[in-house]
Design a protein around this nucleic acid. Structure first.
Lengths: 101, 101
DNA sequence: GATCTATGTAAGCACTGACTTACATAGATT
DNA sequence: AATCTATGTAAGTCAGTGCTTACATAGATC
């Protein structure tokens, strides 16, 4: 979860995620949307891929990227745990907490 | 949203959030749970408070902190937007995206 | 097969951020 | 009022990160 959270804590990487949310795009295509260097975007893509937030596919010369929403499941559950008023969840979280201390 | 995401992207701060999720705690009480210096925790609390993730209340000498789950609403919506298969959401997000480019 | 195209990797730099110790301050206690 | 207690703030250090330019490499094209 740490990797996912720090990955999406960056503005640029969230923009990249939006770009590949609905369609696969090549690294170059993605980079063309930004005014930083292409290697910078390549490095962001590595961070996103390492966190599992995007999947990579080779297509000849190019590398195609696409968002992988499964990667957000853990973070989603974490957020929901704090957000909801569901007593069962809160209780479970409380027990989890006391166990870990 | 940026502030909230980078705030919760830190392990220590997520632990602090868990500590004050169900009960109000003083800064010193919180700090006693960790093996870093008290000022370090004070600085983390400032980050969390600035992001709106905790509320602060003066009680005589002490400052009492408590998690504020409202702060997560924006992030929650962001995550849900990526997570769910809800077509309406996806469509709205796509339109939002094209408008912003 | 020489060259072009798309892309990742390496090395270095500037900035940020988490931590430390030292200090300041406001409220409680004696 | 002197002192203690709880806490924030200041200044400095060190590691991490986002960026750059230069280089490497694999696949496409001539």
């Amino acid at each position: 979860m740490q990797a996912v959270l720090s990955a999406i804590a960056d503005d640029r990487r969230r923009e990249i995620l939006r770009l590949v949310q609905f369609e696969e795009r090549s690294a170059g295509d993605i980079a063309s949307h930004f005014d930083v260097s292409r290697p910078a975007i390549s490095q962001h893509l590595t961070v996103l891929r390492t966190a599992g937030l995007v999947s990579e596919r080779r297509d000849g010369n190019r590398r195609m990227y696409r968002a992988n929403r499964e990667a957000l499941s853990e973070v989603r559950e974490y957020i929901e745990e704090f957000w909801t008023d569901n007593l069962a969840r809160l209780k479970a979280a409380a027990e989890k907490e006391s166990n870990e201390r």
